[in-house]
Computed example of a mutant assay.
Amino acid sequence: MNPPFPIPARRTFTAKTVTLAHGGGGSAMRDLIDDVFLSAFSGAGRAAPEDQARFDLAALAARGDRLAFTTDSFVVDPLVFPGGDIGKLAVCGTVNDLAVGGAVPVALSCAVIIEEGLAVELLRRVVGSMAQTARAAGVSISTGDTKVVARGACDKLFITTTGIGVVRAGLDVGIAKARPGDVLLVNGLLGDHGAAILNARGDLALDTTIESDCAPLNGLIDTLIAAAPGIRMMRDATRGGVAAVVNELAEASAVGVRLSELAMPMRPEVQGFCEILGLDPLYLANEGKILAVVPANEADQALAALRAHPLGREAAAIGTVTAERPGRVTMETRFGGERIVDMLVGDQLPRIC
């Protein structure tokens, strides 16, 4: 039987830029969400639109015994940079925050604030990058929100992602669990993201192209946990770099940390970049690197497992935990001296994530 009135066909989305109407709650907003967001995140299997995502508690409980929950906002400038963009960064950042707590990431939310005038083509690129990265990480983008603000009220595009994951039963990692004798590991070359962002801004006429290390690390972390079941702590070294993480570790665990400058894995380009600008590479942001603390008797197998993974081929042991000078981080320099590594007061590079 024919319906008593015609059902309107879905309109083709042809807008070139985002307007305030696309955030007004009407058909223009529905068209933007359907065509740009839902088509990327849900594909052909999209469900009826609801105001929340729903999960089977029994399925979650089968994966572990605790729920992990995290959120982060991303305001990077530029939106697209060598090795990634703000969309890839948002997914990787939230997945990694879950994974370093020992959780298996399950699902993300995506809330966007869009400045009026943003090119729809750029928005599609960012959303497509988010969808691709989520698939690579094995998570779904299950719910979200869209706001459009007037020109000047935000800088092009801000993204907030929230994630949930399930912590493995029996695993207990944390920033306060380091013990004297433990070994500090990183899974690869440091400082790439911070250097890539500054170089991408075009403020410097450098010939080299440095790519961000932005990547989801949950697969690598699975490998690490299997190799070192006694692992004490993991943390992704984002804003503030490795220096921020080791200072937080030393304070929370009431231990000393001794680093080795010669052991720090770093690209010659990044080292040279820092020397030109007077930056300390220990404080440069990373988006695909973790610092892990493992017992000394598990360090060799943990390092071997990291190096066997594609995201850990340049992994290195960079220092040890000591009982001396609790709360203090020191570094043995390449010349045989020693210097204190403090927590950064401000930020060497603005807007890196």
Rank of each mutant, 00 (worst) to 15 (best):
M1W: 11
P6N: 10
T12R: 12
T14P: 01
A21C: 05
G24N: 12
G24V: 03
G26M: 10
G26P: 09
D31I: 01
V36A: 03
L38T: 03
L38E: 14
S39A: 15
A40R: 00
A48L: 15
P49S: 05
E50P: 00
L57C: 10
L57R: 15
A61H: 10
G64D: 07
L67N: 10
L67I: 15
A68D: 07
T70S: 06
V75K: 13
V76A: 03
V76K: 02
L79A: 06
L79S: 04
V80P: 02
G83N: 08
G87M: 00
V91H: 04
C92W: 01
G93R: 04
A99Q: 03
A99V: 04
P105V: 01
G117S: 06
G117V: 07
L118K: 07
E121C: 00
E121D: 15
L122M: 14
L122D: 11
R124H: 11
A131H: 00
A131D: 00
Q132A: 14
I141H: 00
T143V: 12
A150E: 14
A153G: 03
I159F: 07
T161H: 01
G163W: 01
G163Q: 05
I164A: 06
V167Q: 14
G170T: 13
A176Q: 14
A176L: 02
G181F: 08
D182T: 06
G188M: 07
G194E: 06
T208V: 15
T209P: 01
E211N: 12
S212H: 06
D213H: 03
C214P: 02
L217T: 11
N218H: 09
N218A: 14
L224I: 10
A226L: 11
R232E: 04
M233S: 07
A237F: 07
R239K: 09
R239W: 04
G240N: 02
V242A: 12
A243F: 01
V245A: 15
G256H: 05
E261R: 09
A263P: 02
M264T: 06
P268F: 03
P268I: 04
C274R: 10
I290G: 04
Q301S: 12
A302Y: 08
A305Q: 11
A316S: 14
T320E: 15
G327C: 07
D347M: 08
L349D: 01
I352C: 11
